[in-house]
Amino acid sequence: MLPRSERWSLFGLSPVLIIVVALAMLGALCIGRYPLPVHDILRFLGASLGLGDMPAAEYDTLYNLIVRIRLPRVLAAVLVGASLSTAGAAFQGVFRNPLVSPGLLGVLAGSAFGAALGILLGLPWASVQILTFAMGVAAVGLGVGIAGLFRGGGIVMMVLGGIVSGALFTSLLSMVKYAADPYNQLPAIVYWLMGSLAMADLGQVGALAVPMLLGIGLLVALGRPLDALTMGDDEARSLGVPVRSIRYTIIILSTLISAMTVSLAGMIGWVGLIVPHIARLLVGPGNALLLPTSAAIGACFLLASDGLSRTLTTTEIPIGIVTELIGIPGFLLVLGRARKGWL
């Protein structure tokens, strides 16, 4: 029998991951304030594909519930969970540190500031989202730029640059909160920072799906050179890997998809840190398998978190709180089971 780390090839693993995510999506469509049995969803699916018949009134009700209310959230959960988890796994490899999360270089701090500023300025929602995305990218640009001021600093300078940039944007966020109208704008900012999939609509999810899935796919393609990168710069170069371009490509792709998650769903913590560890326990550290597995588990993790946030109480709990509440004990469990050698 092949060792755990090589039992799967990407070719064999992909269908399994896709089926698991599809089942999780089906389950997520069932749950909510009005629970739906699975066969209703399948009958609706059949009817909308013209394979079966359904009374018009029932069809309309189900269309409203499934397509207009639940589907956008389910798709957003899949995209956000997969993006944050893939970006987190890629960052852990690039920075050779399993305790790194996608926010390391300041993307989440920058995006949070962008969203808050947009709300403060009373911009239309689409503009808020663009500002959110742009500020996330700007924060990483600033962090990497600071690192570039110091010649030959490598990844340590980049981490320090990210800390500086993150601190700057966090203080800017505080200024915006301080300036915001406390009855109207401030609650909106605070709720957004807790994360929510409730604002997702189908058109927007569809528009972001293409770049997010493309970003995840490109990161997965970079899995093998990323393996070499985790061994050290000189070793990776001596193995024929163009270290700088691979590293910057991974950082850019991870930043873009992370910033998009904040545009779509606000700040959702812990997913990008914990999910790669779960994936590593399942398929080992090889990034060619680790990244797609992280994407699939991240999607399922966020679907489950969203399900809890919708059903635990009569009013919805912000999903960022749920991921943190699940994430902390989950992380402790993973730490206990993880292979030693990096702590």
Binding site: P3, S5, E6, G93, R96, N97, P98, L222, R224, P225, D227, A228, T230, M231, L239, G240, V241, I246, R280, G284, P285, G286, R339, G341, W342
Partner: peptide, 21 residues
């Protein structure tokens, strides 16, 4: 190394220049 690559995976990294990235 920070990640628990198997010895075989480490040795297979030597094939990177031959297979391409």
């Amino acid at each position: 190394t920070p990640f628990p690559y198997s010895v075989r995976q480490v040795v297979l990294m030597g094939r990177l220049p031959a297979t391409g990235l």
